[in-house]
Amino acid sequence: MDAIVKSFAKSVMTADRPSQAEAEDAVRTLLRWIGENPDREGLLDTPQRVAKAYREMFSGYERDPADELGRTFEEVAGFDDMVIERDVYFHSHCEHHMVPIIGKAHIGYLPDGRVVGLSKLARVVDIFAQRLQTQEAMTAQIASTIQDILNPRGVAVIVEAEHMCMAMRGIRKQGATTLTSTFTGIFKDSPDEQARFFTLLRAGARA
């Protein structure tokens, strides 16, 4: 059922997607709206460049994070302790103003018989980051995806980021960062495991 829903949602998104030409026309409209002349030399190729850049920056809509976590390894020499990947840097965009969110994610999980390649965790972060986001939603999406697909004993995700919607406009507070966290399984139920996760993160930061 989930596969059918995902396939249907993707087909609807593809059917409703404007053409490249329509996207470029929309950029020209915005250029005129801000007071620019899209026909001047420096802006002639800007609509095409913007459309291409958007296709790259928002490629997360075309990728399924479950695909990245599908291959796991059980031959881990009996290892069953915490796995942590810290400082996974990302660029995302705020869904309210479509301006950048720049930050890093820290991910930990307690395996239950199988582990996943470390690059796969970073790719899950990238997939969700390359969509319009709120930091709170992105943090929960990363944690729930890892929990649902790998079924570990618990997942811990911390995201810290600077939001350009605060730095470039509105209150204009450069350097202010937002910290969000989501815990599942044993990390949610055991304060000791949460504390150990934070301790290992700090130890890695000092190394």
Rank of each mutant, 00 (worst) to 15 (best):
A3I: 12
V5S: 10
K6D: 12
F8E: 10
K10Y: 06
A15P: 01
S19W: 06
A21G: 11
E22R: 10
A23W: 10
D25W: 05
R32G: 03
G35Y: 11
E36Y: 08
N37T: 15
D39L: 12
R40W: 05
G42Q: 09
G42M: 12
Q48K: 15
Q48R: 13
K52M: 12
R55Y: 02
E56V: 12
G60C: 04
G60Q: 07
D64I: 01
D64L: 05
D67C: 07
G70V: 02
G78D: 06
F79C: 02
D80V: 10
H91D: 07
H93Q: 12
E95F: 05
H106M: 09
G108A: 13
Y109S: 01
D112I: 00
G113L: 12
V116T: 08
V116H: 02
G117K: 04
L118V: 14
L118K: 04
S119G: 14
K120V: 07
K120I: 00
L121K: 07
A122Y: 03
V124R: 00
D126V: 08
D126F: 10
I127L: 06
F128P: 04
Q130F: 06
R131I: 08
R131H: 11
Q133W: 06
E136C: 04
A137D: 03
M138D: 01
D148T: 12
D148G: 12
D148I: 00
N151F: 00
V155F: 01
V159D: 00
V159Y: 07
V159A: 01
V159R: 08
E162F: 03
M164V: 06
M164L: 14
C165K: 05
C165S: 03
M166A: 03
A167H: 13
A167G: 13
R172C: 03
K173V: 11
K173I: 13
Q174S: 12
T178W: 02
T178C: 08
T180V: 04
I186Q: 10
I186N: 00
D192F: 07
E193S: 15
Q194G: 04
G204W: 06
A205E: 09
